[in-house]
Amino acid sequence: MRHIGIRKWGPGLLVMIPSIVVIAVFVYGLIGWTVNTSLTDRTTALPADGYVGLENFTNLFQDDRFIHSLKNLGILTVVFIVGTMVLGFLWALLLERGFKGEGIFRSIYLFPMAVSFIASGVVWRWLLNSAQGDEAGGLNKLFDSLHLGFLQNPWWNDPDWGMAAMAIPAIWQLSGYVMALFLAGFRGIPGELREAARVDGASEFQMYRHVIFPQLSPVALSALIIVGHMSMKMFDLIMAVSGAQYLTEVPAVYLWTTLLGSNYAKACAIAVILLVVVAIVVVPYLISNARAEKRR
């Protein structure tokens, strides 16, 4: 943006003031409350006696259970983000040019988003049933009867990589939405750009590679952030598929069980760590992205 006066940008700031106020109160006010509580000794339903500095945090990082939940979250997040981004982008690419019956595909790809995990959790509990062979149910049974028995696996019951399987229902649910984001992005690209590329003699592939894809990077960023923030807070899915148990515990579930034990300080400390992790990953990216946009 070149230098412009307040008369120019003033109205912009003005219309955003209501949003700024509610975000300040309901997001940052509550983040402030969370940070504040995380520094106290409020480990019961009683009010805090005083501040304990970073003790709650150091305790957490010496807590095997917490480290285990972070590991689970890491696996879940990577598989979930890669899965939804790849599938969503692929679907959008396949549907992008539009054809008869496209609407049916699009609606069905989107449909899983309509189903809340409270209900579809039951189905996924079945589908990801770990029993194999004669006892098999769900997907293992399907593999078995399709003579794809070697594909049978214990899904999320595997103590090492099970969390990767936990991402499957999440990928199922959100790939369609990522597709919608990319489709909106594709459709937002003016037809002239494509025409111009064609006139210049670019092949179809070159046109996508050099004209279309670069235009999609802001949309890809939206998708990444939306999927990422879902992953960080992944809670409903895990509660529905496995319930709160050690094997599949992620920080959000740990936070919930801690809250039930009225250990507010520890629960808030977990929340703060989640936020810090996000900050470390997202903020540099946002800043570099903002800079790149300015250069353009």
Partner: peptide, 18 residues
């Protein structure tokens, strides 16, 4: 036991279960 104690025990037992 209190809820938080039960929580801690459940986690240790769950870990043993794996």
């Amino acid at each position: 036991a209190s809820i938080s104690w039960l929580n801690d025990i459940t986690s240790a037992v769950g870990k043993f279960g794996t």
